[in-house]
Nucleic acid binder design. Structure first.
Lengths: 180, 180
DNA sequence: CACGCCATGTAAGGAGTTACATGATTGC
DNA sequence: GCAATCATGTAACTCCTTACATGGCGTG
């Protein structure tokens, strides 16, 4: 009954023990571009994982009024994560606001559309530069056993996505320019 | 205050009058791969759009116990849709279960991972064939004024996306094979 | 002295899914 | 007779976002 968010947390904890705050930090853009959650959602989910005995924690004196809690996977938690990884992902429906706008674009002002897509293209190109820098920092695919292998493979997917998007934006701009 | 779903409905109605049922049908996969919603969500949203006077309807005798309602855009509705199209889309956080699994893949059985990605690849290739057929049916980009232009441009995005995903799956399979 | 970082949580509301509920017509 | 299509809607639930609430420590 664990939600995908729950497994996302388990996946982060598989890399080492963390506080809820640390987990929230590592799930904030642009550090990880494949799952995001706010801290309030994470604290709530950690309580469910705790009840299911997939994680435990140790208290430490915290900076605020409450104690700091350092979470770590249990044996059950590791097993549940391992089993989940190779199960087929449940497909979430595609929801893409930009493509929806495109679908209705015939009604809009072509000049304004050009501004919209030029702006989107710039964003994708900026992310592409950023990801390429990260790829260079890792310097080629690590070995499969290495935990950085997961980071690299995810980064690869991000690079491919941004490239595809940038290309589509360029095609759209060509189309809009040709229609004038 | 209209939600993206509201605009999705307005975008469908911009192509012609529809019942709630028709809208739900046109927003069901794989016909439109950029926004989806169930009929219960659509009926509820139509009531909000009605209250905001962005749509109107005419009653007709229906097949069930209730009357059939044929919805159509009002002047305000068309204006709201037109203005929305060229506004920058609010970015939704990326949530990709397969990439999340990849991030944690180091813990899993490589053979099971290979099955997972082979299966995903097959799905993307099947969609690619399907979309290519649809592209051929339209036969090149229609003129910008043509309402089918929006369909074609969205289809183009879908094609690029499936191609990128398929390529990434192939790269993953290569990696997994190399690690054995 | 204000702001950002660290660190925990609750509460309210919107968005989306799934199941329940009704009922005529058409095709296997 | 059973299932699918057409056609409407409500109810319960989960997931996610945003705002509220507390408070010490370090930096400019």
């Amino acid at each position: 009954m664990t939600s995908t968010l729950g497994f996302a947390i388990l996946a982060v904890l598989a890399r080492g023990e963390r506080t809820g705050y640390d987990i929230a930090a590592s799930m904030r853009r642009p550090v990880s571009y494949f799952w995001t959650a706010g801290h309030s959602q994470i604290h709530a989910e950690l309580q469910k994982l705790l009840a299911a005995e997939l994680v435990t924690y140790e208290k430490e004196a915290g900076p605020g009024p409450q104690d700091k809690k350092i979470y770590r996977l249990t044996g059950d938690g590791t097993a549940a994560l391992r089993a989940w990884i190779t199960e087929p992902p449940r497909e979430r429906p595609e929801r893409d606001e930009l493509v929806l706008k495109t679908y209705a674009a015939g009604l809009a002002d072509p000049a304004a559309l050009r501004r919209l897509f030029a702006d989107q293209l710039a964003r994708h190109e900026a992310r592409l530069v950023e990801y390429a820098r990260e790829e260079e920092a890792i310097g080629g695919p690590p070995a499969f056993g290495d935990p950085r292998w997961g980071n690299y493979a995810a980064l690869r997917c991000g690079l491919g996505y941004e490239r595809h998007r940038a290309e589509w934006c360029r095609w759209m701009l060509d189309q809009l320019n040709a229609s004038l």
